[in-house]
Every structure is written in structure tokens, then in C-alpha cells.
């Protein structure tokens, strides 16, 4: 509870669960949700380093806030793309959107 390693391992676990989700999900929304987990693993690492190793405790918190902002922007854009893909192809499976495959 008091050691840096606990938090780092937890962040790494979140990151790897996110990677697992991206690789095994076939729908685009499922992959997006897994991306959020990856971003949160990164944010958790920032907060942990901030708590244990940083000289200025505001830096890590501010970076975590920025990660949240970028995640929100990413969600908005990606969801609108998913909705557009659905309207065009009537599917949200990553395998079925392959028009540019040649």
C-alpha cells in the first residue's frame, strides 16, 4: 500500500488488460473501451511517480488532468467515426470495414 511498486504493477495490469481487450474484441466500440483502460494505466503511473518520486507534487496531477482531457477528445472523435462507419456499412466489426484493402 505504501510502496511505489504496488501502484506500478496495478498500472501495468490495467495496461495489459487493455491490450488484451483491443486484440480480442471484434467490435470497434469494445476496442475503444479497452483504449480507455490503457490511458488510465498511464494516468495511474503518473500519479504514483508523482506521489513517490517527484519534487513538485503538482506536475503529475496536472499531467493526469491532461490525459483525461485528451481521453475525452479521443472518445468524442472516435465515437462519431464509429457511428459514421455504422451508417455506411451497417456493421461495427473491425474486420468488416475493409474497403481500402485493395
Amino acid at each position: 500500500m505504501e510502496s511505489l511498486i504496488t501502484y506500478l504493477i496495478l498500472g501495468a495490469l490495467l495496461f495489459c488488460i487493455g491490450i488484451f481487450g483491443i486484440l480480442q474484441h471484434s467490435s470497434l466500440i469494445g476496442m475503444l473501451i479497452a483504449t480507455e483502460l490503457i490511458l488510465n494505466g498511464a494516468g495511474l503511473n503518473f500519479m504514483a511517480f508523482n506521489m513517490f518520486l517527484s519534487e513538485n507534487p503538482a506536475t503529475g496531477q496536472i499531467f493526469t488532468l491532461f490525459i483525461m482531457g485528451v481521453a475525452a477528445a479521443e472518445t468524442a472523435i472516435a465515437l462519431s467515426i464509429v457511428i459514421t462507419v455504422y451508417r455506411k456499412f451497417k456493421k461495427i466489426m473491425a474486420d468488416s470495414v475493409s474497403e481500402l484493402k485493395g
Binding site: I5, A12, F15, C16, I17, I19, F20, L23, Q24
Partner: peptide
């Protein structure tokens, strides 16, 4: 696909944990 994904994430985790520890 699921088994491949599981192994990829497992290997990633082991490498990261090794680095952290």
C-alpha cells in the same frame, strides 16, 4: 484470436513487471 491476445498481453505484463521489479 483470444488465445493470441492473451499471450501477447501476458508477455507484455511479464516484461513490464520484470522492468518495474
Amino acid at each position: 484470436k483470444v488465445i493470441t491476445a492473451f499471450f501477447v498481453s501476458l508477455v507484455t505484463f511479464i516484461v513490464m513487471a520484470q522492468m518495474i521489479l
